[in-house]
Design a binder for these strands. Structure first.
Lengths: 346, 346
DNA sequence: GTTAAGATTGACAGCGGCGTCAGCGCCTGC
DNA sequence: GCAGGCGCTGACGCCGCTGTCAATCTTAAC
C-alpha cells in the first residue's frame, strides 16, 4: 500500500477524553445537534482545536449512510461552459461538507443507464444535471427510479418535480431581435442551435416572436440550422451570405457559431459590423477573443450552477426547496453589431 | 435527512452467505488478492452478480484507510487548459476504483497552506499538481511535510523526487523559431509569458536559442512581456507593431496572447499573414476560432495529465514509477504564418 | 508413505463515527 | 412536597469492510 503519513490523526475518542465527555457529545457538537449545553460545547470545541481534530469522512459516511459527495453531470463539450458550471457548483459547496465529483459524458446515450452505476460506485448523495443532459428522458427516469436526489440546470422538458434553475432563453432571443431592430435591421438571419438542445427551440421561438413583434416578415431562407459548433456556424454563415438578398444581421444561437459566421464574413469580404451585424449567445470567452468582439447574451451559467447546487443541498438536508427558479440574463453589446447601413457598399 | 432509496443494497455478508464462503474470501476476490482458488472465485463472482453486489466505498475507505479519491489541483484560469487536464486525468481513472476531485485555486498563495487541510477534509489519497501550481515551493513543501503522495505535470522547478510528466517547452519554442526562419523571417518578436510560470522562461530560452542558431540578432526591442492573457497580448502586439523597424513575425507564448496580437494587427491595419506572421502556443480551441487560425504548438496537456495521474496511481499502489517522463509536442501550422514579404506594402 | 512448505480459508477485532435508548438532574404545575 | 416533562448526557451496538493470524488443506520432495 501507499506510504502513510507518520502522524496518526486524532479521533473522536481522543477529543471526548480530552474534553471529559462521551464521544456522542462530541458527535453532537460536530453535527450541530441540539441539546448540548454551551459550556460543554465550548469544552469540546477547545479540545478539538487543541488536538487538531477533523472528523473522519469515511467513518461519517459509513455510519451516517451518506457520502457528502455530489456529482455534476454534463455532456457539454464547451470548456468555457463546463468550467463555469464547475465554478458555480464549487462556489456553493465552499464551506460545506459536501465535495464535488465531475461527471463528464460524451453524450446522453453514454450517460443513460450508467448514472445509477456511477452513483453507487462513487456513493453519490445526489447529482446536478446540466443541459442538455438534464433533458434526457432516460437519464432523468433512471435517477427517479433509483431514488437519487437531483437538481437540474436550465431544463426545458418538464415532467420532473426535481428542483431546477433556468434562464429565459425565449425572452433573451427576443431581446436580441429587439436590439437589432432598434439598430434598423429588417433582414435578420438566424443560425439555429442543435435540435437535441431544447434551449435551441426556445431561442428560435424568441427570434420569431421578436420578428413578429416588430412587424418583420418571416423568411425561411434566413433560417439556417447549425449544431452549436464553430464549423456549423461557418457553413451557415456562408449560406446566408450567399443569398441574393442577404441579411444585414445574423443571430447565431451560440458564440462558437457566431465566431464561425464572423469567419464566413471575412472570407466573403463582408465587413462587420459595417455590412453585417452578428450576435452570439452565451458570452463565453470566445465572444471577447474574436474580432470584433461579439454582442451576445450573457448566460448566468455560473449562477445557475450555484443555485442548482444549493437546491440539491437543500433537498439533501430535507429543507424547503423552491421547485423552479428563473435567473436574469443580460444582453452584452460589443463591437459586432451596429446600425444598418442604408446603402450597402459593394 | 435525505430520502433514501427503498432498496437495501446487498453487503459482503450476503454474498458470502450466498457463495458459502467467509466474508474475507469475498473481500479477497474483490481486491484481487492472491490465493483464492479459481473455483471459489467463480462462486463468489456468481453470487455477487446474482445479488447485484457492489462494495461499499465508505466501508472500504474506513477499514482500508484510503479513500480512493485523488485531487487535481490547478490555478490555471484557462478553461480549455483546465478541461484538457481534467479529461486526461479522468481518462486514466476510467475503470479504476479511484475517483477525481477537482481543486481549483485562484492562485498559488490561496493554495498554500490549505492543501493539507483540504486533503484531510476530503480524505484524499494523493494529488496531481498542474502548472504553475506544481512549481510553487510552499505547496510542494506542504505536501512533502504531510506525506501526501503527489505527481506533477510539466514542472520546471526541481528539488522534488515526486514523479512528473512534462514536455520540452524550450525545444518547442525553438521549433517555432525554426519554422519562422524557414519562412524567411529575420525580425521575430516575442510576447513572453507571465514570469510566475516557469514554462515562460523555458520558452523564452528556446526562442533565443533559435535566433542564435539561425544567426539572427537578439534585439531587446522585440522582446515584450505579457501575462498569458488576451489583453496583455493585445498590448504587447501594439507595442511591437509601433516599432519603427517592426517585426515580420511575432511569437506569443500562448494562444490567448496570440489572439491579442491578432487584434492589435487588425487595428493597425496590418494583414496576417501577409505583413505579419503570428504564432501561438498551446493549441487551445482559441487557436481554431480566430481568423486566421493560429499556427501554434500543440501541448499534450491531456496526455500529460493522463500520465501524471497514472504515475500517482502507481505511487499509491507501491509500484515502480519512472521519476520523469517527457512527452512529445507538435507544431501545428495553420493560416497565421506565411513567407516573409520581401517588400512590405504600406 | 511421511513431512515440510505452500496454498487456501475463516474467525475475529477493529476502522471512527452515528442512532437508539436509557439515565439523571432540574423545572413546572398542582 | 410530588409527579411528569424536558434538557442534557453517555453506553453501546452497529455501519460494511480490511488486516491479522491461526487453522486446514494441498502438493511435492524425501
Amino acid at each position: 500500500m501507499a506510504r502513510k503519513p507518520a502522524t496518526r490523526h486524532s479521533t473522536i475518542t481522543d477529543v471526548a477524553d480530552a474534553a471529559g465527555v462521551s464521544i456522542k457529545t462530541v458527535s453532537r457538537v460536530f453535527n450541530n445537534e441540539p441539546n448540548v449545553r454551551p459550556l460543554t460545547r465550548d469544552r469540546v470545541l477547545a479540545a478539538a482545536t487543541e488536538l487538531d481534530y477533523h472528523p473522519n469522512v469515511a467513518a461519517r459516511s459509513l455510519a451516517g449512510r451518506r457520502s457528502f459527495l455530489i456529482g455534476l453531470a454534463y455532456e457539454n463539450p464547451s470548456p468555457n461552459y463546463v468550467v463555469d458550471l464547475q465554478t458555480g457548483a464549487l462556489d456553493r459547496l465552499h464551506g460545506e461538507r459536501y465535495r464535488l465529483l465531475v461527471l463528464p459524458f460524451a453524450d446522453a446515450a453514454t450517460a443513460s443507464g450508467k448514472m445509477q452505476a456511477i452513483a453507487r460506485a462513487s456513493g453519490l448523495d445526489g447529482v446536478v444535471l446540466a443541459p442538455p443532459l438534464c433533458d434526457d428522458a432516460a437519464t432523468v427516469a433512471e435517477l427517479e427510479a433509483c431514488g437519487l436526489p437531483y437538481a437540474r440546470i436550465a431544463p426545458t422538458s418538464g415532467g420532473s418535480q426535481a428542483p431546477d434553475v433556468a434562464m429565459d432563453d425565449r425572452h433573451a432571443a427576443r431581446a436580441v431581435v429587439d436590439h437589432l431592430a432598434a439598430l434598423g435591421h429588417k433582414r435578420i438571419g438566424i443560425v439555429r442551435g442543435h435540435v437535441t438542445h431544447a434551449s435551441a427551440m426556445a431561442r428560435f421561438e424568441g427570434y420569431r416572436a421578436g420578428l413578429e413583434a416588430h412587424g418583420l416578415p418571416i423568411d425561411a431562407d434566413l433560417e439556417t440550422q447549425g449544431a452549436y459548433t464553430f464549423l456549423s456556424g461557418y457553413e451557415a454563415g456562408r449560406k446566408l451570405l450567399a443569398l441574393k438578398d442577404r441579411p444585414t444581421a445574423i443571430f447565431a444561437c451560440n458564440d462558437d457559431m457566431a465566431a464561425g459566421v464572423l469567419n464566413a464574413a471575412y472570407e466573403a469580404g463582408v465587413s462587420v459590423p459595417g455590412d453585417l451585424s452578428v450576435v452570439g449567445f452565451d458570452d463565453s470567452n470566445i465572444a471577447s477573443v474574436v474580432w470584433p468582439r461579439l454582442t451576445t447574451i450573457h448566460q448566468p451559467i455560473r449562477d445557475m450552477a450555484r443555485e442548482a447546487t444549493g437546491a440539491l443541498l437543500a433537498l439533501l438536508e430535507d429543507e424547503e426547496v423552491p421547485p423552479h427558479r428563473m435567473l436574469p440574463y443580460q444582453l452584452v453589446v460589443r463591437g459586432s453589431t451596429g446600425p444598418v447601413r442604408e446603402k450597402a457598399i459593394r
